[in-house]
Amino acid sequence: MKRFIIGAVSALAVSATAAFAADYPSKEIQGIIQWGAGGSTDTVMRAVTPHAEDVLGGTVVMQNMTGGVGAIALNKVAGMKADGYTLLMGAENPLIYKIMGLGKKDYSDFVPVDILARGTAILVANNNAPFDDYAGMLQYIKDHPGELRIGSTGPGGLPSVVTAMMEAVEGDLDVISVPYDGDGPALTALQGGAIDVMPAVLGASIEAIKAGNMKPLAVMDTEKNEFLPDVPAITSFNEGYNTYLPWGPFFGVFVKKGTPDDVVAKLSAAYKEAANQDDFKTLMHNRGFTLMNISGQEAEDFLTKWQQGTSWLLQDAGLTKSSPEEFGIKRPGE
């Protein structure tokens, strides 16, 4: 009986304020950030959202919800009502949850509001490393098997994907993979000499490279990067990388699937305008991210392509818990 009354009362409260796009937002919106305070995702979301608030004419209350490589936050938003009042502010990781055994849900349960930007990966080395470019590193690994220490951030993290890519192109590499809990700590360890090489996001390492505190080996892209014009693209060492690149992490805002189309449209428009503000563009530029600012079908296609490429790369490297096939993720190009 009690449960019925509670149910009835809450049902009343809901129906009284049911989301109609005309007056959306009629209450404050929750923004759940998948990663901790101070991380890249956090900075990007806290920088873009105030502009979006202005356009929406509402309040977005942002909270960090960490844990389970972001799965805790994703499941939380997936468990809320699809009314556009809970946003998921996340990065690329959820697209490989299923194959890594980290969760049963991914972005296919969500609608992209805006994919804001993507990053480029770069291989950096400790200044005292006995090689100065990518070719030199490969030679060193060959001459000293099992001695080069490469930083990683756990299975499915950016370094593991890059390493998988390297093994797919160059064949097996006999190196030691030392795990860190994020690229920040790993890059610190790189500068202190605890690891020799680290595949990292360009933005996280760019300032240290410019200052000469670590040396860049190659940009993991098909062409040189505008921020570091002296660093060769990895494809200039081995054409084989063209199959997998361009590839990189990304940031996006999502709502649960089933959210009314007009609400999604309103949110998308708000974030699109927000991401077009000059100061946000400058921020992205300074951190070495490439602005994307896409939504709708374009964003969906981007997600599908990203998921297919990465999933099969990890599968072929033997890093996955279950095959992408089980979840209907097709091989790229099929």
Partner: peptide, 20 residues
């Protein structure tokens, strides 16, 4: 501190928005 405690039966977000 915008800590969003469980709202349960009280439509807090709506009330706060109305006040805003």
């Amino acid at each position: 501190f915008t800590v969003l405690m469980p709202t349960g039966i009280i439509p807090e977000a709506e009330i706060l928005q109305a006040i805003r």
